[in-house]
C-alpha cells in the first residue's frame, strides 16, 4: 500500500509519453503468450470442457430402451437425492474421509518431521522406501493386497492358521472398508509425506537456531515452528485427500472380484456411476451422479478450507 503511493511519480512519465509504441509491443507479446498457451487451451477445451458440457447436457435427458431419449430437466438429479444407493455410497465415503484421511496425514506428517529432523540414519533410503508404494499403480497395489487379504490362500490367514488361530475374514461386510482404508493409506502416505517434506525444507533454518537458543526442544520446534509454517502444504494434502477419497474407484472395483457379495454396485459413488453407465446402460443418470459427486467434493473441500481459514484469522 505504501509503495503504490510513492511509485506513480516515477512511473508516470514513461507510461504517458510513448503509449503507441508500448501498446504495439505489448500486443506482440500478448500474441506470443496466446500462441504459447494455445496447445494447452486446445487440449483443455477439447478433452475437458467439451466432455464436461456434454455430460452436463446428457444428465438433463432420460434415455429409455423403449421410446429413446427425451428431455427430462432435473429429474435425474432429483432421483439421485432420493436414491439410497447413491446416498449410502456418499455416506460411506464420508466415513472413510473422517477415519482414513486423518490417520494417513498424521502418519505422513510424522514421517516428514522425522526425516526432516536429520536425526534418522539413512533418511534418504527411508524416504525412498516410504515413497515407493506411491509409484506402484493403484491396480497392482489392490491386486497385491487382495492376495494378502485372501481367506484361503493369503499370507495373513496362513500365519493365523500356523499359530492355531481362526484367520480373520478381511473381505467380509464388516471389515472390507477397513481393508480398503489400509490399502489407500499404504499407497498415499509417501505422496503426502513428500509434499510436507518439501515444504519443511523451505523453512529458514535461522528460526530453528533462534528457537534452540530460547531453549526449545525438537518437539517444541516441530509443534510451534514447523507445523504452522507448512500449514498451506498440509491444507493442500487435505484437499487432495478429500478429492481422492470421494473418487475412490480402483479398490472397490478390483476387490469386487474377490468379494462380489460385499461390494455392491454402489459401494462408492464413482463405482456407482460406472455401473450405471456400463451395466444399467443408463448414461444419463450416470452423468447426473458424476456431476453431483463433483458438487459434493467441491462443497466438502470448500467447507474444510473455510473452517481452517476462519481458525487462522481467529488465532492471529
Amino acid at each position: 500500500m505504501t509503495q503504490s503511493v510513492v511509485a506513480p511519480a516515477r512511473v508516470r512519465p514513461t507510461s504517458v509519453k510513448p503509449p503507441k509504441k508500448r501498446n504495439a509491443n505489448q500486443r506482440r507479446q500478448n500474441r506470443a503468450a496466446y500462441i504459447f498457451v494455445a496447445p494447452f487451451l486446445l487440449v483443455f477445451v477439447l478433452m475437458l470442457l467439451v466432455p464436461l458440457f456434454y455430460s452436463g447436457y446428457l444428465s438433463l435427458f432420460a434415455t429409455r430402451l423403449v421410446g429413446g431419449s427425451q428431455f427430462a430437466g432435473l429429474t435425474n438429479y432429483i432421483r439421485a437425492f432420493t436414491d439410497p444407493a447413491f446416498l449410502s455410497g456418499v455416506g460411506r465415503m464420508g466415513l472413510f474421509l473422517i477415519i482414513q484421511v486423518p490417520i494417513m496425514l498424521a502418519l505422513a506428517l510424522f514421517f516428514a518431521l522425522a526425516i526432516d529432523s536429520g536425526r534418522v540414519k539413512g533418511a534418504g533410503a527411508i524416504r525412498l522406501l516410504i515413497f515407493i508404494p506411491y509409484a506402484v499403480p493403484g491396480v497392482v497395489a489392490t491386486l497385491m493386497w487382495g492376495y494378502i487379504y485372501g481367506n484361503d490362500f493369503g499370507p495373513i490367514s496362513q500365519v493365523f492358521r500356523a499359530i492355531g488361530f481362526a484367520p480373520p475374514d478381511l473381505l467380509s461386510a464388516g471389515t472390507i472398508l477397513g481393508s480398503i482404508m489400509n490399502i489407500v493409506t499404504w499407497e498415499f502416505i509417501g505422496y503426502n509425506m513428500i509434499i510436507m517434506y518439501a515444504a519443511l525444507r523451505s523453512i529458514p533454518t535461522e528460526l530453528y537456531e533462534a528457537a534452540e537458543i530460547d531453549g526449545a526442544g525438537q518437539f517444541r520446534i516441530a509443534w510451534s515452528i514447523k507445523i504452522p509454517a507448512i500449514r498451506p502444504a498440509i491444507m493442500l494434502t487435505v484437499i487432495f485427500s478429500i478429492i481422492g477419497t470421494f473418487q475412490t474407484f480402483n479398490e472397490p472395483s478390483l476387490l469386487h472380484g474377490l468379494a462380489p457379495n460385499v461390494i455392491d454396485n454402489a459401494y462408492t459413488p464413482n463405482y456407482y456411476a460406472y455401473n450405471l453407465a456400463f451395466t444399467n446402460q443408463d448414461v444419463n443418470y450416470a452423468a447426473a451422479i458424476a456431476f453431483l459427486l463433483g458438487i459434493v467434493i467441491a462443497v466438502v473441500s470448500y467447507v474444510v478450507q473455510l473452517s481452517t481459514q476462519r481458525r487462522e484469522t481467529k488465532n492471529s
Partner: peptide
Amino acid sequence: DPDFTDDWYQG
C-alpha cells in the same frame, strides 16, 4: 460362495 473367485478355484 461366490464363483470364479480365487477362493472358489481353491475350493
